[in-house]
Amino acid sequence: MLSANGLACERGERLLFRNLGFELGRGEALLVVGGNGRGKTSLLRILCGLSAPAAGVVRWRGDPLGKAHEQYGREMAYLGHANGIKDDLTPMENLRIAAALNGRELDAGTATAALERVGLSRCMDFPARVLSFGQRRRVALAGLMTAGALLWILDEPLTGLDVEGVAMVERMIRDHVVAGGLAIMTTHQPLVLDGLTPKTLSVGE
């Protein structure tokens, strides 16, 4: 479904990686590994279509990303370093506006269920500003669940989460992939997806 060919990336004048490629189909996960500053985040941003590679092409369902913008936007969800939630809105408003921007209606019941699942049932009516870093990360994770995307691209999804949160994310990813979804992620922490071995791709050796 997702394929990348001959990707290269430059930052400033430095070549981060070149000739990188992979194929990912339904029910598969890909773990991107590599040390700090090797271009993991740059690779994920290229895969999201946020930045253009210096060379190479990324295809979704056979179409280059530039052409598949609309479909890809609906079927892909990205969780980056920044949580992508507004501090002045409540978690509930954040989820519903994000869904509306993606062209979907999200009813209050589904949103509440998602927020309860990530353990935020008591903070639903506060602006996100008063939440802790980990709690805000959880709001973003709830957004990921309600996005209804086929492909998840997760940049360090475990940062800022406690032990229980880490277990929750691992469960989320596993369920998503087992249900036929695709996941691409980077992490510096050990990630246990039980019964599932992700493919690995190492960046910038």
Binding site: C48, H69, Q71, M76, G80, A82, G84, A98, L101
Partner: peptide
């Protein structure tokens, strides 16, 4: 806060 990226990736 990253919401711009999210909006750029919308359909």
């Amino acid at each position: 806060d990253g919401t711009l990226e999210q909006m750029l990736m919308s359909p």
